[in-house]
Design a binder for these strands. Structure first.
Lengths: 238, 238
DNA sequence: TTTTGTTATTGTGTTTAATACAATTTGAAT
DNA sequence: ATTCAAATTGTATTAAACACAATAACAAAA
């Protein structure tokens, strides 16, 4: 007789990071559940179980679009989270059973991360889902191990950005001042940077192109706006 | 009635890398199977399905020890491989069914990597398993998507080492010449390095301690041996 | 034993990037 | 017009990366 080896559920969770000019934020989904007869509200990462025969990367893309409306966002797989206790909380178990109509065994999730401009409009397909930005340093307790997943994603962002800081432009708005860009660097690397030296270093880059427009309504010299030229960047790259 | 959502098998695969003084090698397991009435032999990464309730990291450690005898090897999770076609080859399907006594559905594997000194003795617990080192640039077609997994592991090694080259000492023997170390750097980074400059850079490191011993029997000036002092390294680290 | 070939090791100078910090500019508010 | 704060420009120092010539040492060949 054939033994059936242990099977598990597999999901993907997307950590979408944005920058509001001052700090990193993560895109979360509101969740409503019932526990002990009481309705509760909390938040979770956009994520879901994968579909039969679906590639992992495709699953991440699909889930992100369904829950947030975001399309054409480059997603990067960064870590698998598979602790047997990650779905131990009764709230999470009951919520899974209610929403997935399934008996919940062990669930391993593949973590993906993405960087988006925080101004992009967010709107899920699913009825009743609502996405919102929350500062990563002010997160309440989230569903499952999602606090841990976000912490790992931010760590990965730091690691990747230290190798190639240009990836951070994905977080900046179309036009930005050098100071705004410096703020992002400071948040990501957790260090103060000399404004003068940072300015010179950035402005010399051929792919940082100056615009005519300047800041309005600041009580000091108005800064020039710049934009990131992806084309020039790709050509400049070795 | 409750629907049973799609479940999958989950495994771990360990890419153990070593350095023979000239090139990178990977530790593989010989596999014997039967296909079309014919016995065949090929190789695969040390890996296996996870056990109920086991942490992913624990599974990787356990599997590596069982199949190669290696203990106390730091393993790093680096990527999940979950393409639906990764277990499409009939050879692989039949082999899984024979060895795991299970009906094989989709199997997702979590890739781990480790760096070890190539001199360590390799000896599996399991009867009939045999591990051997194979140069990563001379790999035959392997089981499943293991060629791809190894390629990703080597890419990850490059990435990690470019951030912190000191991790490469895990690949070097206890005592080594500066030239041997330079060879490793050149293999990993795929670039030639100036021997004179590399020498000066390395010898100035406080954690590279010179030994009295020198090379024997070379037809040129004998190089001094050095060793990596982990203690000093950790103290020197900021 | 001397010469030769080869790699280890040392020396020196150039170039580039990182860093510190003073000085100047400018828009808005007083 | 004066003041404030931040943007921008200037200048100098330091450290690291890099190129490459020169010397040292060992084994094998002559």
């Amino acid at each position: 007789m054939e033994t059936e080896s242990a099977k598990i559920h597999l999901s993907v969770d997307c950590t979408v990071l944005g920058f509001d000019g001052e700090r990193l934020e993560v895109l979360l989904i509101r969740r409503t559940g019932v526990e002990g007869g009481e309705e509760f509200h909390d938040m979770k990462l956009p994520g879901s179980v994968i579909v039969d025969g679906e590639e992992l990367d495709d699953a991440a893309r699909r889930v992100l679009t369904e829950l947030t409306g975001l399309k054409n966002v480059p997603l990067t797989q960064f870590h698998a989270f598979g602790s047997p206790d990650r779905t131990k909380d009764p709230r999470d178990i009951h919520w899974l059973e209610a929403t997935q109509q399934m008996h919940v065994g062990r669930t391993v999730t593949i973590g993906y991360m993405a960087l988006v401009k925080i101004g992009r409009s967010i709107m899920g397909d699913m009825e009743g889902t609502e996405a919102l930005w929350v500062p990563v340093d002010k997160l309440p307790p989230l569903a499952f191990d999602h606090n841990q997943i976000i912490a790992e994603a931010v760590k990965m962002l730091r690691t990747l950005a230290s190798m190639d800081p240009s990836m951070l432009y994905a977080l900046m708005p179309r036009k930005f001042t050098v100071t705004q860009l410096r703020n992002l660097y400071e948040v990501v690397f957790g260090a103060r940077l000399d404004p003068a030296n940072f300015y010179k270093k950035m402005v010399q880059m051929p792919y940082i192109v100056p615009l005519e427009e300047r800041e309005k309504g600041v009580a000091h010299r108005a800064a020039r706006y710049y934009r990131f030229d992806k084309n020039t960047y790709n050509k400049t790259r070795i």
